[in-house]
Amino acid sequence: MSSMNTPELSAAMWRKSSYSGANGGNCVEVAPGFAGVVPVRDSKDPNGPALAFEASAWAAFVAGVKAGDFGA
């Protein structure tokens, strides 16, 4: 895994999955627009910490979720 700098996220435009539903649920939010990384945070704790994943790792994770690789 390569080293990367954590982006400055104070002006990030966070978005929640359309699958999250109206009740909040267990959701993550992502902030698009950062070159090479995807910032992710817990929607229930917007002031808490965020993680920054390499874009290729995030894409592989999303593909795995869509393929059902992680079960229920």
Rank of each mutant, 00 (worst) to 15 (best):
E54W: 10
L9Q: 05
A31Y: 11
G64V: 12
M13C: 09
A60F: 02
D69V: 01
M13H: 14
G33W: 12
A55I: 11
A35W: 02
V62G: 07
A12C: 13
S43H: 05
D42L: 00
S20R: 02
A31K: 09
P7L: 08
R41D: 03
F70I: 13
V37S: 00
S3E: 13
G33D: 07
V38F: 05
M1Q: 09
M13K: 14
D45L: 00
S10F: 10
K16H: 01
P46A: 06
G48L: 01
P39T: 05
F61D: 02
P49D: 12
A52H: 15
S2R: 14
M4G: 07
G71I: 06
G36P: 03
A12L: 12
A59M: 12
W58H: 01
S18M: 03
V37N: 06
M13I: 07
M1S: 10
V65A: 05
P32K: 10
A12N: 08
G71K: 11
N23Y: 13
M1D: 09
G21L: 03
A35K: 06
D69R: 14
G68Q: 01
C27H: 03
K66F: 04
A72Q: 14
G25L: 12
A67M: 02
V30W: 08
G25M: 07
D45K: 07
D69Y: 01
E54V: 07
A12R: 10
P32Y: 12
P49Y: 00
W14A: 08
K16D: 02
N5C: 01
